[in-house]
C-alpha cells in the first residue's frame, strides 16, 4: 500500500490558488525529492500536508496510510506518523528542548495507544537516538531552538524526527542557510533514518542536498503543478539547465 497518495491536490493561501493539481504517490522506503523555483508552491505543499490552517485545501484528496486526512488536525497528522522538518524552526523561550521532546513523544505514544514513557525510559530513548543523530547535551537542556545557530536548529529538527519515528518525513528546504558541513550532518541523520517502512519527501530549491540524500524519484514543481518526474539524474540535469525552460514552457 502507498504511504501517501496525493490526488489532484489544489490549495490556496489567503484565497490565492497556489497548488493547481498535484499528483504524487510515495511508497514505504522511497525517497522523493521535489524541486522547483521560488514561488512554485513547495512550502505550500508541505504545509498543506502537515495541516497548517493558514493553507486551505480547495480540491483533491490526500490519503495517508490509506486514510483521508481531511478531518485530521495538524497534531493528529503528526501522531498518525507524519513529520514536517521546518524550513525555519520556531524558537520557543521558556520550554526546554527535553521537556518539549518528552511532551511530543508521549503525545504521539498516547495517540497510538502506547504507554507513556517515564523519565528514565525517556532518557534511554534520548541516548539511543543520540547514536543516530548527534546532538550536544547543552542543546537538549536549552529552550527549544533559542539562540541555536542555523545548523543547530536543523539538526534539532532531524533529532526530533528520530525521536518521533514517523512513517513519513517531510523536509521543507532543510538545506536552506546551511554550510556544507552542517548539510552533511543533517543528511547523515536523514540517511540513518531511512528504512524500508519509512518514506521521505525532500523539498529543495537546490540539487546540492540531493548529493547527500540520494532520492529514488525527483519531481519538478512549477506554478503549482508537477511538470516532470524522473530518477535522480533529473536533479542533475536541472542543476545544469535550471528551471527556466520549464517556467517558459508553462508560460508562467
Amino acid at each position: 500500500m502507498a504511504l501517501i497518495e496525493i490526488k489532484d491536490l489544489h490549495a490556496s493561501v489567503a484565497d490565492k490558488p497556489i497548488l493547481k493539481g498535484i499528483n504524487l504517490t510515495i511508497k514505504p522506503g522511497e525517497v522523493h525529492a521535489i524541486m522547483g523555483p521560488n514561488g512554485s508552491g513547495k512550502s505550500t505543499l508541505s504545509n498543506v500536508l502537515a495541516g497548517n490552517e493558514a493553507y486551505v485545501k480547495t480540491a483533491g484528496q490526500v490519503l495517508f496510510d490509506g486514510k483521508d486526512i481531511d478531518d485530521l488536525a495538524a497534531h493528529e497528522r503528526a501522531c498518525a506518523g507524519m513529520f514536517l522538518a521546518f524550513q525555519y524552526p520556531v524558537e520557543i523561550a521558556g520550554i526546554s528542548n527535553m521537556y518539549f521532546l518528552k511532551a511530543a513523544v508521549n503525545a504521539v505514544r498516547k495517540y497510538q495507544g502506547k504507554d507513556q514513557l517515564d523519565a528514565m525510559e525517556f532518557l534511554d530513548l534520548i541516548e539511543e537516538k543520540k547514536k543516530v543523530v548527534q546532538i550536544r547535551d547543552d542543546l537538549l537542556a536549552r529552550a527549544v531552538n533559542s539562540g541555536f545557530s542555523g545548523g543547530e536548529k536543523k539538526r534539532n529538527e532531524i533529532f526530533q524526527m528520530a525521536m518521533l519515528e514517523p512513517k513519513l518525513g517531510i523536509l521543507d528546504e532543510t538545506d536552506s542557510g546551511l554550510d556544507i558541513d552542517a548539510l552533511r550532518v543533517v543528511a547523515d541523520g536523514v540517511n540513518a533514518l531511512r528504512s524500508p517502512d519509512r518514506g521521505f519527501l525532500v523539498i529543495t530549491h537546490y540539487q546540492r542536498l540531493l548529493d547527500y540524500i540520494v532520492p529514488d524519484f525527483v519531481h519538478v514543481l512549477v506554478d503549482g503543478q508537477i511538470v516532470k518526474s524522473g530518477g535522480k539524474e533529473l536533479a542533475l540535469s536541472l542543476e545544469d539547465e535550471g528551471y527556466a525552460s520549464w517556467v517558459e514552457e508553462k508560460g508562467a
Binding site: A73, A93, F100, A103, A104, A107, Q160
Partner: peptide, 22 residues
C-alpha cells in the same frame, strides 16, 4: 509556536498551556 508544537503531536490545548507556562 503553537503550530510548531502541533506538528510534533501536541494538541492545541496542551500547546497553549505549555506556551503560557513558558
Amino acid at each position: 509556536a503553537l503550530y510548531y508544537l502541533q506538528t510534533r503531536g501536541i494538541d492545541p490545548i496542551k500547546g497553549h498551556a505549555m506556551l503560557t507556562f513558558a
